[in-house]
Nucleic acid binder design. Structure first.
Length: 274
DNA sequence: AGACACCCCTGAGAGC
DNA sequence: TGCTCTCAGGGGTGTC
């Protein structure tokens, strides 16, 4: 399940592969993936344009092309970009780019939650809604203890739902939300209104720390996520609570509990997280 | 505006 | 063996 570190890993690897390359075309195998612009038009819009920049916003990947045309790629639950080898056909490729270096960059997504949006960055009316509503990046100065204190007010949300809210901060999903709250010693069921100043400070600190550590290890592979070259992320072995129901907490040996919040699994230590 | 339910989608794994 | 059911969850939409 790609969250910020997985998206960043893909971006880091894409940079050396596609910057400066010209897009010769796109083949769309499942038109449902193309949003905001007609599937039949996307090829015309990007053909012949070169890749200027590859970046990330939250969990999404942004490919900037010449003439101010951008592609926003949302990975969804199981999506990923991989360089394709024509000799080894891949399943679940939903669309693919043909590049000027004769390489093919494919979007692989088993469960079809991903999407691609094409837009002119100088036409605000077409600017993706998703990008407009995103909260600050976790590594930016805007994401601070002060900001959290302001945002948590008047909200009856749980701490877990709060840090997973993309409008609050961009890029934290279910796995890292569990890990961040464990490191910050905060019970995921706590109402945001009850969070103290020093707890907000810890959320900021550990959000950055954990996401950074995961990026250094190439992200987390639980089931489907893969890197550009199809290798796996190595952060999974560093997870302290996620996926560890009934295993002893590494700090106090209390068994890790699993509950459901907003229809998603939450893992936490009932003893360490107050 | 916030809270919440529901929908999208496929394969793995459990249970019978 | 093979069928059916449940679960995984990011994000959009619709309703109250």
């Amino acid at each position: 399940m790609p969250e910020l570190p997985e998206a960043q890993t893909i971006v880091n690897e894409l940079v050396s592969e596609i910057i400066g390359k010209v897009i010769l075309g796109i083949e769309v195998f499942d038109p449902k993936f193309v949003k905001q612009i007609k599937t039949s038009d996307i090829g015309k819009k990007i053909k012949g344009k070169s890749v200027i920049k590859v970046s990330r916003r939250g969990k999404a990947i942004i490919i900037e092309l010449s003439q101010s045309f951008n592609l926003l790629i949302q990975l969804g639950m199981t999506g990923g970009l991989i360089l394709l080898n024509p000799d080894q056909p891949q399943k679940y490729i939903r669309y693919q780019f043909l590049l000027s270096n004769s390489k093919v960059l494919g979007f692989r997504d088993m469960r079809k939650f991903g999407k691609i949006i094409g837009y002119h960055k100088e036409q605000p009316e077409f600017y993706p809604k998703f990008l407009k509503s995103l909260g600050p990046e976790p590594f930016s100065e805007d994401f601070s203890e002060k900001y959290l204190l302001l945002k948590k007010k008047n909200r009856s949300l749980s701490a877990k739902d709060f840090i997973m809210d993309q409008k609050m901060v961009a890029g934290v999903g279910n796995i890292y939300a569990c890990e961040i709250l464990y490191a910050a010693k905060i019970n995921p069921k706590r109402k945001t209104a009850t969070l103290k100043k020093k707890e907000c400070k810890r959320i900021v600190q550990y959000t950055r720390e954990i996401l950074n550590r995961a990026i250094k290890r190439g992200g987390t592979t639980i089931r489907d996520y893969m890197r550009l070259d199809e290798s796996y992320g190595e952060y999974k072995e560093k997870l302290l609570v996620y996926g560890r129901e009934n295993e002893p907490c590494v700090k106090c040996s209390t068994l890790i509990k699993r509950i459901r919040q907003s229809n998603r699994s939450t893992f936490f230590c009932p003893c360490c997280q107050k």
